[in-house]
Each structure stands twice: as C-alpha cells, then as structure tokens.
Design a protein around this nucleic acid. Structure first.
Lengths: 121, 121
DNA sequence: CCGCATCCGCTCTGATACTG
DNA sequence: CAGTATCAGAGCGGATGCGG
C-alpha cells in the first residue's frame, strides 16, 4: 500500500482484485456472516436463514467458499443425507472485518439513502 | 446483529444488502481506495491509476459513488474541461474498513491460492 | 435432504464511435 | 479532457426437473 499504490493496482497480484472480487458476488458475504454468527449449519438451515437465495446459488457460493478455504464441508453418509458447513480458521478471521463493514453500513445507511434521494432530483 | 440475525437478514433494510451490495461491482472499492490514497484526482488520473477500467465504467462508478454521497464531483468550466473528484467525509470514513479488508486479503492471499489449487484436484 | 444439470433472461461490462 | 451513445458479448442468477 502506501505509495506503491500504482504498482499495487495494476499488478495481477493485487489482493483486492484476487480476493475481494470473490466477495463481489451476491451471497458470499452473507453466508460468511451467517456462519460466523451461528457456527455449524446444515444446508437448508443456511438457506432458510438467508431467505431468498436459490438452492443453486447457495450451492455455488458454498463451493466457492470451500475452494477458497473459508468454509469446511462435512458430509454424513446417512439417509436422508446430512451436510454440515462451518467456517475454517481462515473464514473466522474474516468475520470481524465483515462485521466492521456491516456496522459501517448500518451506521451510514440513513445518510446514504438521503444522498441517493437528493441525487435523483 | 447478535441474535436478531434472522430478522436482520431477511429485512429489506438489511444494511449488508443495501450498502455492501453496492460495492459488489467491479470498480467501486478500487476507486474509493485510490481516492483515499491520493486525495483529489482528475478523471484521467483515476483512469490511469487503476489501469484497466474503461471510460464508461469509471464514469458509471463515479456517478454511483457520488449518488451515495461517498465522492464529491467538482466541474471547472474551462477549456479543456477539468473535473476533480475527492472523497466526502462519508467516503473517508469508509476507507479504513476497506484498508482492513485489503490487508486481510493481502495477508491471506497465499493461503487462499493454495486452497484453490488443492481444490482443483 | 442435498444438490447437480439444463435452460434462459437479464444485467453488467467492454469496445467503439462521437460530442462540447 | 471528460464525458455520452450505442451495440454486442459474457456471465450471473433464477426456475425447473432429476438423481443419490
């Protein structure tokens, strides 16, 4: 960071592009947040908690998070099948940062809304 | 937060959905980061610093950030025209949080990459 | 119960050309 | 210099149906 921001930005190793872009999708942050809050959860539990995520997107999101090493997935060979998800230490280490962002969002939502309204005119 | 996460998640007022979704686009975070680093900047300056953003997307991104009240836009009626952008106090207040995230990304990029490689197999 | 496969619409993004 | 306009492609995300 600091003064090397130019190099930093254009580099293909830029952490912002490589990592944060991953959370630019619609659900990743929410899933991490939910798992951080609740601990271990089953697939349908996550689905219900978030509410309006489709099965497909939740699957895709969980797979991506698993690939990134943020979420662990444990399948129990039972009938009916049971699959439990929880955050890895890596995922857990991310939670406070997301909480901070969420808190910021919460604190400033009013001002942002006001600004958006004004801008319409 | 805390225990009301269910309500929190499903609410249409959920700050995560309303605010953070806004930064899910490809460039907003980068623009805020760059402006936070450099202070006041002209359009082409931002364009060059980021490197591979198209003129169109930079315009759209800046307009959105302006609408949200994170960035201020000042036009100087000269020829050739000059337009300067800088963060508002709201935008500035967001920067540290993004820095934290970027730092996290930087610290854990290696581990995430390793995990992604492993997952391929 | 979990989740993959398919299809499809829609949004986002970029390339290009043009204007004050 | 700082945009706007238009067009076209890619990929996200949802609905549905099927399978272990």
């Amino acid at each position: 960071m600091e003064k090397n921001i130019e190099k930093f930005m254009t580099s293909t190793d830029c952490p912002v592009r490589n990592v944060l872009d991953r959370f630019g999708d619609k659900w990743s942050i929410l899933v991490v947040l939910v798992l951080g809050e609740k601990g271990t959860m089953r697939f349908n539990e996550i689905n219900k908690t978030i509410g309006d995520v489709s099965q497909k997107m939740l699957t895709v999101t969980l797979r991506t998070l698993e690939a990134d090493g943020l979420v662990s997935r444990q399948v129990f060979p039972e009938i009916p099948p049971r699959v439990e998800y929880e955050l890895t230490h890596l995922g857990i280490s991310l939670v406070p940062h997301i909480h901070n962002l969420a808190a910021w969002a919460n604190d400033n939502l009013g001002e942002i809304r006001t600004s958006r309204e004004k801008f319409k005119v």
